[in-house]
Design a protein around this nucleic acid. Structure first.
Lengths: 339, 339
DNA sequence: CTGAAAGCGCTTACAG
DNA sequence: CTGAAAGCGCTTACAG
């Protein structure tokens, strides 16, 4: 057992000051690096701290300087099993980056349009800032945080140019995947998607359209279905587009894709021979499907990490870009192979 | 907009004392309910607080009373897509219960056998206690917390009777499911499972054995495979037990089950006609599989909720049961239907 | 039943 | 470059 780390922390800044024959002020300055202090004095203090494994009391520091060294991550209350890996990886990214700067991450789970959990944390002064997940559209939280003057960054996009945002280049990604499919000679591409009020879906739809338009391919209304909010609608849309001669079905997210695959399995079509399939979002379940599915891949951990770094910069008063755009990968797999 | 909640919190205990012509002590006592105080005085203070929407500064309270009103939830660094829903639901349970008592939850993600993240939180004094996930076997954290005297509760089981634990009745559940299958007349039941160093797997195995023994069914060594750590081993085991005449394959967890299903799909056996399948753990992906899979269901949110309540009781110095056992459901589905 | 005062462990003008 | 002192917003013996 290591003697220097044994037992509970109990030494404080006064003890150090006394032991070294300096003032508390000096010790504080040595630690924080703020204010003028002699290099020698400083080294002496740091050595002592090192040797005695001293860690400043974060609460006391917080009380004195109005900081908590906590940030809150807002998670949507409900999300499908397809969104879970993404949110879990983002959480990892946020966590790792926060910890590096000695911040902790507090979670806040909010039902749509209920900001009470956020309000609680803010009013209790438990955190220095927030990181928001776009997933659930919650119109109330952004205005609330703005009004309260609480720093925050959004993982996702929004129109308000005052909010700091980090997002993947959704539109460009979808445009690229669609373009690749078209260039492969697949002419009749169907698009199935969910709620178009959703920002992400809007961008994805736009990317799809741009690809078609740029290549001079007509968009066939009989092959494009959005607003598919449940399994039945998705299955029916799949049936329709197949009946209308689709060669490839592009799914705007994994929920849609999973349903489409179920439908194809039931009706005993073969992928990719009878019908090709691609998804605008990559998920382990689809990656490991019997026929591996072509999809767009986004690095969720990086998203969380960058969002957190933005917030920490903001908290330290550093300049911060208003919007950071992150990359993507187009992963071509068996499901779109030419036959 | 509500005027009483407008703008930032800025009133403090001294302001209240001054406004009411009483001492800070009195105000503090009115709020905490500790110490003798006149009912009238108290009401006066509470009214004022209500009216001005005052919330005590948690940091200051923490500094004075050595409390943070935070608890930490330790999450394993890596887990499969099958464990995610479970851990997410547990998190929800912990969160909801914590918030009710005005606690926040801080996350700690620890790689196996690395307690640095835990140590950081403890040394920084950021939380009052921990809730541990058994998932990752991390031998170092329990001894560390014990040594430091930090209260904690384990979601799961362990041999150390000093640790407060909350767990589902794994053994009983597995015994019951196996018994039901046997009583249905399915004689040749195979069991496939992963790492037997894992506490949960031990209990599940035990439950399976008890069911067989109680009904006087011999356990066939050619039908029982454990230590199946990867896809290839699982597929091979599935092939073996089918070759050995298994009528039903019981999977000790969802990872095993998913692989078994893949193997069955590839080899074009039919469920439940050719072979029946059951899992000792229920997961949305299996529930929604083409043939819905018979499984044991555990309420993860309740687990988190009860664990959190235990910890809060512990923190308030209330008596706490050493081990709480939670229920389960046996969910019979298509995959074990008699044909 | 109530209050004055010390203290929790830091930070930070202000003065030297 | 360094220090004495006030202050962050609470709690809690201690005294009345």
């Amino acid at each position: 057992m290591n003697h220097t780390t044994e037992g509970k922390q109990n030494i404080n800044i006064s003890d150090i000051a006394a032991a070294l024959g300096v003032s508390k002020t000096t010790v504080s300055r040595a630690i924080s690096g703020k204010g003028r202090i002699g290099a020698e004095t400083r080294a002496k203090v740091m050595d002592y701290i090192e040797e005695h494994n001293y860690r400043p009391n974060v609460l006391a520091r917080g009380l004195a300087s109005s900081k908590t060294y906590n940030i809150a991550l807002m998670l949507p209350a409900e999300f499908s099993r397809f969104e879970q890996p993404f949110s879990r990886e983002s959480l990892s990214g946020v966590y790792k980056t926060a910890v590096k700067c000695d911040y902790d991450v507090v979670i806040a789970i909010a039902q749509p349009n209920n900001i009470d959990p956020i309000r609680r944390i803010v009013e209790n002064g438990k955190v220095d800032g927030f990181i928001l997940f776009q997933a659930t559209e919650n119109d109330a939280v952004i205005p609330y945080l703005q009004e309260q003057g609480v720093p925050f960054v959004l993982m996702g996009s929004c129109d308000d140019s005052r909010v700091i945002q980090v997002d993947n280049r959704q539109m460009a990604a979808c445009q690229e995947l669609t373009t690749i499919l078209l260039l492969q000679g697949i002419k009749k591409i169907a698009l199935l998607g969910g709620n178009m009020l959703n920002q992400v879906n809007k961008s994805r739809y736009e990317g799809f359209c741009k690809a078609c338009d740029n290549l001079g391919c007509k968009r066939d209304k009989n092959l494009i279905f959005t607003g598919l909010e449940n399994d039945i609608l998705i299955a029916r849309a799949a049936a329709d587009v197949i009946a209308n001669g689709a060669e490839c079905i592009v799914c705007m997210d994994d929920i849609v894709c999973a349903e489409v695959l179920k439908y194809i399995e039931k009706t005993e079509h073969c992928i990719p021979e009878d019908i090709k399939v691609a998804s605008f979002y990559d998920n382990q379940a689809l990656r490991e499907y019997l026929v591996s599915i072509t999809a767009l891949h986004f690095d969720a951990e990086e998203l969380g990490s960058v969002a957190c770094r933005q917030l920490l910069d903001l908290l330290d008063g550093r300049a911060v870009e208003h919007k950071i755009e992150l990359g993507y990968q187009v992963v071509l797999r068996e499901s779109t192979k030419l036959t």
